[in-house]
């Protein structure tokens, strides 16, 4: 219940927020934040099964190029192109997932890193299709949504992308939440705890892991596609190794145990450097300090801090009442 109310409240805030923002730059920061929230949360879905994927960067690259090229080469509508890009990425994840998911722990993480590196190399190499290292430019924005008399969203202003990203984020979070609360989420958590037991009582562990992987990557593909149409340019190494590492850090700093963790992590660590721009010079150190503090004092991440805080407040209230 608290969860529901908080989410509704935050959503309403986010709907009205752009009207209070002083310039397009802040709108941009929020768009990126919302992208990062989808990325961390979808990465967490994969990690529910106990496997840490580092393929998100590669999957975003595939999504971005697929969507951009479908629109630019085949003249597809941007909307279809983005959806197809997401599905294509899910397919790629499914096909690579079956062999990859046979590996456990660090081995899995490593092959996913190498997979991403291969995606970068292939996009650089395949010039006739992708334009090579130089990347592609002038990727068109999504087609306008016009409902005569009501609204006209033409994606000429950043605000329109803001609402699009907000829609994507809410839709993704709802789907991810539903999956986690469904029997699938339950099974994935079981697999994470005792893989061999889950398999021996009849759960197709590889199948479920691949399902989680390919669903998580679907969202990465959609975000990649969104990004390419939003920024209107894309390079093979836009989403390289460090991009993925950042997502992973946002997720872990936020806390992997609860659904809100990665959201919190992505939000704080994307927004923090921007709102303290005065301190930009010292940002790396603030960032480092936050990381170190979380590593040493908050094994459950920022989300753990919040739940502790709430418990503490409740305790105080109870003492007062008593």
């Amino acid at each position: 219940m608290t969860y529901l109310l908080t989410s509704l409240f935050l959503t309403v805030c986010l709907i009205f927020l752009p009207h209070f923002m002083s310039g397009p730059y802040y709108v941009h920061v929020f768009i990126i934040t919302m992208m990062n929230i989808i990325l961390t949360s979808s990465l967490r879905l994969i990690s529910l099964s106990g496997q840490i994927s580092l393929a998100h960067g590669g999957m975003m690259t595939i999504g971005a190029y697929t969507s951009a090229l479908l629109v630019m080469r085949l003249g597809l509508s941007t909307w279809y192109a983005m959806l197809i890009a997401g599905l294509f990425v899910a397919l790629v994840a499914c096909l690579t997932g079956f062999p990859f998911m046979r590996l456990k722990g660090i081995y899995f993480s490593i092959v996913t890193v190498f997979f991403s590196e291969m995606v970068v190399l292939i996009t650089q190499q395949w010039e006739s299709l992708t334009g090579g290292s130089g990347g592609i430019y002038n990727i068109p924005a999504p087609g306008a949504i016009v409902v005569t008399g009501l609204f006209n969203i033409d994606f000429l202003s950043k605000i329109h992308f803001y609402y699009f990203a907000l829609f994507l984020m809410i839709a993704s979070l709802l789907i991810l939440y539903a999956i986690e609360k469904s029997r699938i989420g339950f099974i994935l958590k079981g697999i994470k705890q005792t893989d061999s037991l889950a398999e021996s009582i009849g759960i197709n562990t590889i199948g479920f892991k691949v399902l989680a992987y390919s669903t998580g990557c679907f969202f990465a593909g959609i975000v990649g596609a969104f990004y390419s149409h939003y920024i209107s340019a894309m390079c093979p190494d836009t989403f390289g190794f460090f991009y993925t590492i950042n997502i992973l850090v946002y997720m872990t700093v936020g806390g992997i145990e609860v659904f809100a963790g990665p959201i919190l992590g992505a939000f704080v660590l994307t927004i923090l450097p921007e709102i303290t721009r005065v301190l930009k010079e010292f940002m790396p150190f603030i960032f480092a300090a936050v990381l170190i503090a979380v590593i040493f004092f908050l094994p459950e991440g920022l989300a753990g801090l919040f739940s502790r805080l709430i418990a503490f407040i409740k305790k105080i209230i109870r003492i007062k009442n008593a």
Binding site: K189, G190, Q193, T194, S196, L197, A198, S200
Partner: peptide, 9 residues
């Protein structure tokens, strides 16, 4: 199994 027959969490 000899060990790990439960989902501990």
């Amino acid at each position: 199994f000899q060990a790990n027959n439960i989902f501990p969490d």
